[in-house]
Design a protein around this nucleic acid. Sequence first.
DNA 1: CTTGGGCTTTTCA
DNA 2: TTGAAAAGC
Length: 634
Amino acid sequence: MDYGKERVIALVDMDCFYVQVEQRLNPELKNKPCVVAQYKTWKGGGIIAVSYEARAHGVTRNMWADDAKKLCPELQVARVRESHGKADLTVYRNASVEVIKVMSRYAVIEKASIDEAYMDLTATVQERLKDMEDRQVQLDLLKTTYVQGFPQTTEGHLDGLDKEVQRSLGVQEWLGSLCCSPGSDSPELRLAIGALIVEEMRAGVEKETGFRCSAGISHNKVLAKLACGLNKPNRQTILPLGSVPELFRSLPVSKIRNLGGKLGSSIVEGLEVENIGEVTQFTQAQLTQRFGDKTGQWLFDLCRGIDFEPVKPRQLPKSIGCSKNFPGRAALVTTAQVQNWLHQLALELEERLSEEREMNGRVAKLLTVGVRQAGDSRACSFSRCCALARYEATKIASDALAIIKSLNTAGSHQAASPPLTLLLLSASKFSEAPGASSGCMASFLSSDINTKQKVPTCDAKGDATPRRAATIQSLLHRAAEKRERTETQKQSSPLKQRPLLLSGKKQERTETQKQSSPLKRPPLLLSGEKQEKTETQKQSSPLKQPPVLLSGEKQERTETQKQSSPLKWPPLLFSGEKQERTETQKQTSSSSQVAARLQLRVRQVTPDSVTSKLVKRCAGDWHLPPPEHRLAGL
DNA sequence: CTTGGGCTTTTCA
DNA sequence: TTGAAAAGC
Ligand SMILES: Nc1ccn([C@H]2C[C@H](O)[C@@H](COP(=O)(O)OP(=O)(O)OP(=O)(O)O)O2)c(=O)n1
Ligand SMILES: [Mg+2]
């Protein structure tokens, strides 16, 4: 088997997904320039999905709806529903489940996002090949398929031709180049069979859900993803490895999945290349030296179109979370505000967790709480977790509040906390729900068996199981997921962590972004100096967290973090706090005070026990509201 | 005061 | 195991 051509991998991605969901709900929106926006008050709301008709007018995601209307006056704007005072994505999640269920009839899939899934079709293709007398793939079974790199054009012969004519010529030419004598096999023939299956799957998805999608078919996930985008919407694209060199010669590095961020920029700048194909000029040693073993090797293969990341059999999420931003003047200042919003988030979380228990027989055991403080450019200023024992919004909210208080006050009574610009609750560490019936054989047998896959033995102690109806595909998935878990971890994605060392200049910028005070490293506060520690806090040994890291610096793993002693939970409110600050405490002026803050660094925060260590963390210059407007007690 | 928002997964130390 | 960060939809 040719190196890098071992598998047949497909990626299916829904076209302007949220828009299609809204169009199905309101058919008047069909075939019109249309967007989905969330919230209304600020500039008409932010656009998160755009129909292809609207794209033709230059409308894009991240635009304000008001601005988009200027580009396209007839633009239809569908609104994300709101519940508990926040955007509610339920209808899109449910639509996603519909789609995934249909796709799972055709293959074991990895749900990669709300609207896309990967599938490894290698085994299915082999099966289909075995049954094929005639190894001729019919052109008319690939009605929506493109083959990248075909038709091969030497001059400008094809320039004037209709796009559909070119597509068809390309498929014909490519099919003709494959050996199709009985018993023949080749990686390219297998891609063609894969494309056949994906044509069927996509037709099935549209028939069952009404939603259209595009797909890429190739030998690995990166190429499949790339191929999918080449002929959107409502089309699929085969990307043979032989077409990669020409494609990669002029493909910007950032177009490759995983290279759209800092790593990609560092490749472009560090190697002085623009296109991914240019990376082939560097030796393996050069790449590993610059980017580390794992990333270097991945990159060496990738720039040749080779990638071994496995498709992970998983169609259920690993975490369920909700969050809300409070930008600018909306930042939360009082305990009552924080309490209230935590409760709203907890209500939604409880609903979704209960639904998950009902539908999939799984319960989450870990609650993660996160916040962002005003002035912090990071997505999350800090997060801590605690046990999630019961699905009760009130309890979830109060645990979350306790965590936030413990972190924010850290016993520093006088140094006020900055307002909060983000609250986040997330539940994870799912396990089988008590009382969930395992492996529902009745529904397994009764569900329509469309697929000719080898059905793995469905042992009684499978995965978490739905209480309603188990579909064959979900059972197949559970078996596949279980298999996967027991196998050795195969990993091959290059998500690189600490920014790469390139030149010193970039790194200063990185630091500046993190801390609002540039150039100056904020002084470390000694934890003992300005604060009274509670009993429990005193037991913890202070842990020095390195000052803001320069990107290249090595972060020291501190020793004592693992030792944890059970501690008593500090009181929720400090005696001095005024509970009710009802009037809307808008931050009136930009009175900037320099305030260093202390943070508690806590491992495993539970309502009953605070385990672990106190850590000093330093802040830059903080812009604080006048004292009377501060978030007392937080 | 940094303001597209609300998500999810993976990697690293 | 945890929390931060990266990358993505
Ligand atoms: N930053 C983003 C990106 C996407 N989405 C949502 C809305 C999209 O409809 C859906 C799928 O994302 P895609 O990137 O696949 O974009 P679309 O499906 O909308 O369009 P395309 O046809 O390009 O796939 O996820 C989102 O909420 N926020
Ligand atoms: Mg999509």
